[in-house]
């Protein structure tokens, strides 16, 4: 049973069962300390194990990131992501995206 914040990808790769939240990377179960949200998502997942009958089903949960927190953009890593750190690295990534084999 999967929890995803990227159902666009989850759908493409054929995940058997998933629930989806519109939460940022690094906080997919909610804000630090938000035990109620962690519990709520987990209850949905446990419930979905019993209710999903069709492989590939993704249930979208009605949770979104608060608008005032979206403005914080505090999920971005402070260190530049290596593949975006130089033009050579970006070019290498573009080549991979266009012609690469993900199972290499």
């Amino acid at each position: 049973m999967s929890l995803t914040n990227m159902p666009f990808i989850t759908e493409k790769i054929g995940v058997p069962r998933a629930v989806a939240v519109e939460f940022p990377f690094g906080m997919i179960w909610g804000h630090p300390g938000d035990r109620e949200m962690q519990r709520a998502i987990m209850l949905h997942m446990l419930d979905a194990v019993g209710t999903i009958e069709k492989p590939g089903t993704i249930i979208e949960l009605p949770y979104t990131w608060p608008e005032e927190d979206v403005k914080k953009r505090d999920w971005f890593p402070k260190e530049q992501t290596p593949w975006m750190s130089s033009q050579d690295a970006i070019n290498e990534m573009l080549e991979f995206i266009q012609h690469g084999d993900p199972l290499e």
Partner: peptide
């Protein structure tokens, strides 16, 4: 390196 780690270091339960 692809998300801000400090939130998980505050409360790993968010991951």
């Amino acid at each position: 390196l692809h998300y801000e780690n400090s939130h998980a270091l505050e409360d790993y339960n968010c991951m």
